[in-house]
Design a protein around this nucleic acid. Sequence first.
DNA 1: CATGAATGAGACTTCATTCAT
DNA 2: TATGAATGAAGTCTCATTCAT
Lengths: 228, 228, 228, 228
Amino acid sequence: MATKVSKLKPQAPEIAARTGVQPTRGFKKKARTRQLLIESALRIYARKGMVDLALNELAEEAGVSSGTIYNYFRSREDVLEAVGLSLAIELSQQVSNLTLDVTRGAQRLSIGVRTFVKQAVRDPQWARAVIQVIHYANGFKTALTENVRADLQLGVEQGDFQYADENVALAFVVSATAGAMTTIVDGYTADGHDGLVAEMVLRGLGMPGQKARCIARAPYPRGLPVQK
Amino acid sequence: MATKVSKLKPQAPEIAARTGVQPTRGFKKKARTRQLLIESALRIYARKGMVDLALNELAEEAGVSSGTIYNYFRSREDVLEAVGLSLAIELSQQVSNLTLDVTRGAQRLSIGVRTFVKQAVRDPQWARAVIQVIHYANGFKTALTENVRADLQLGVEQGDFQYADENVALAFVVSATAGAMTTIVDGYTADGHDGLVAEMVLRGLGMPGQKARCIARAPYPRGLPVQK
Amino acid sequence: MATKVSKLKPQAPEIAARTGVQPTRGFKKKARTRQLLIESALRIYARKGMVDLALNELAEEAGVSSGTIYNYFRSREDVLEAVGLSLAIELSQQVSNLTLDVTRGAQRLSIGVRTFVKQAVRDPQWARAVIQVIHYANGFKTALTENVRADLQLGVEQGDFQYADENVALAFVVSATAGAMTTIVDGYTADGHDGLVAEMVLRGLGMPGQKARCIARAPYPRGLPVQK
Amino acid sequence: MATKVSKLKPQAPEIAARTGVQPTRGFKKKARTRQLLIESALRIYARKGMVDLALNELAEEAGVSSGTIYNYFRSREDVLEAVGLSLAIELSQQVSNLTLDVTRGAQRLSIGVRTFVKQAVRDPQWARAVIQVIHYANGFKTALTENVRADLQLGVEQGDFQYADENVALAFVVSATAGAMTTIVDGYTADGHDGLVAEMVLRGLGMPGQKARCIARAPYPRGLPVQK
DNA sequence: CATGAATGAGACTTCATTCAT
DNA sequence: TATGAATGAAGTCTCATTCAT
């Protein structure tokens, strides 16, 4: 499947590459089409935002017939939901991988913030997609921000953070990070952007300036850094 | 196909009456239809977001025929742009009125942040509209954030703020404020929400905790506080 | 309007005739498009039945753009409803015109039945449309059958009819008439078909054979007999 | 593309069990999938009408894959046709069973009419399906009405009926019966509904009132009365 | 034969935009 | 300028049908 010629339009190279790779591995099931659709949707988000995701365009991007989408999703809303959730899970895991052996909440948070900012610098298109999802997909926040909440609580216990309201602090972290990503998408990037943002966030959460700067500018960990 | 600007022509009586209520500025006297349309658009934003602004609906909300819109705007995009710009100007003036006699950058900034958060608490629908505009209207940020930029520079000169990059700081202030508004729109409000956010922002900009708290929690000024 | 060329398809002759006639008379309003749509819908009913009424086909038949339909009807359902109601009203008036000076219920009923059967013989396509509407449009029955109900009651008062249940009798009259029309649409027509059916109906309602035959075969009245 | 008939191949166990419940006729033993599909279709007719029969839904109702349908039917039209024919045959046999030892045409006809009306009262959903089939399936009438035609002729020979045209009479009987069923489906049922309708029909066919009433109200015969 | 993913034509509906009045 | 009927492209969704497995 996904190989049926499709009178739609010649495939963009990255699609050929992608679909060419996947059939190689002997995945058992054919329902990988769903994943293909989600990935295609993210590419469109990157270009035009979720608001303008047209299902026939998605079908074209995925090299699939328009009706096929409805074998995997009940409605357009359902597609947006699923894409948001999928992205949230993927990003959660990426950040988790980088903070497996970090036990200090402030450090964990810093790494999380920096990961997103670094990735935005590296791939602004990806950042556009993520920002879209943050603003629109309901399931996204709840799925992704639980990690942030845990790090905040850890930071409080460890005496690094002081804030009056956890939800307000949570929104602060998320929106400041997303705001930095937006700046980058809009074409502006500062030197050490990721560290600058992390420092501001840590300070905002109540950490003294010196400590905040120290943590925010610590070497970024290895791991599977940020490979989309 | 139809001119763009024009604030010249007499309107139906009920429109004159309606716009007469809005003493925003001393326009000539007739043809404030354009302003009427913008205000109507904002009401629709508040209800449904700008993404879903339908021009037919706008015409109905404004009590005007659908074709009339094209006597004042070239296209739907043009309407969105104009609404964003108008909102930015209006909000700038509101904040300016409150900070006319405040000379300290940090205080000015704090008041600005708190104004938006307070207003969001008071009128979440309005906040929805503003958030929509922040995310979508291109001209909006540049028009509104120049005040913020000035306050930032003032704060640096006065030794209150320390940040490595002004643009990053600017984005930080705006996104943290918008993030708090989003939280409120989503139904969560903390006690003294406006002060909490202002404090976080000031700290993030490099102000020591005690000072930040002191300024952020100072009495909110009088004036024409925030009357939509 | 309705003259805008329409890149759709050359008009069938009867459409040209129809639209050619209407603009002649100086009708004031342009919203006769609604009537045009209803008439076009009836032509499609005649060919394919209501079930298969496709709105783009309706637009084509009416020589109108597909979106225009939605200036007059909220949805496809609404179109079907309106067509049914319109037809019911039209038919009611036709029958009323023929029975203005007939005071005997049995006679009135006989004329009604015969009118439908005669018209079906004359224009089986029209009959197809009517049958479709009888079976599917909810508003149709209630609008049209009130006349029948009145005639039934009159017949009972005048001692011509005897039946145990009025609703059952009403259904009997309507379905027997519609059944005869179906027969005709299917290609079979008997001599004096209208009289035969009327006689059966009158008998079924309790009228003795002689009287029934006499009334059912009475000369059909003048008037504006049945000109669609 | 795939053969049409075939009642040859073994089915999944649950299907065999299911069809085993239907001892309609002594088919070989396997592959009553076709019959299963027809029965499933009738259940859907009862719920939603044949117009809305979706083949996907039919497949699900039958516990079969959508492609399988095409091993037994050439197209959706073919399914509808087959369902109509099957229902006609089944109903014919039900009525036949009840009139095996009845030799008077008027009585046979009365029993037939009453059977349908009684069954409609008992199971309006079933009646919906039958009405749908009467209106839409072409093969249905010819298959079912031959019995009615025979009874009509018998009634004429026996001096009970008098009508000018057999086809008109036939349509009269069928449509009056179907009309009564429609009334019932629409929610109205009279006391002794079946007898009332039979009496009207007999009278309409020319039988004097007393005799008609007597026959129409005769005790309804035993047998396998009407068990779907 | 059975499966069910894929197809793609076509249906309904919305809405920005045009234009004659 | 104001009107609002008309337009038609575009979008969402359904469903009969095909075909590789």
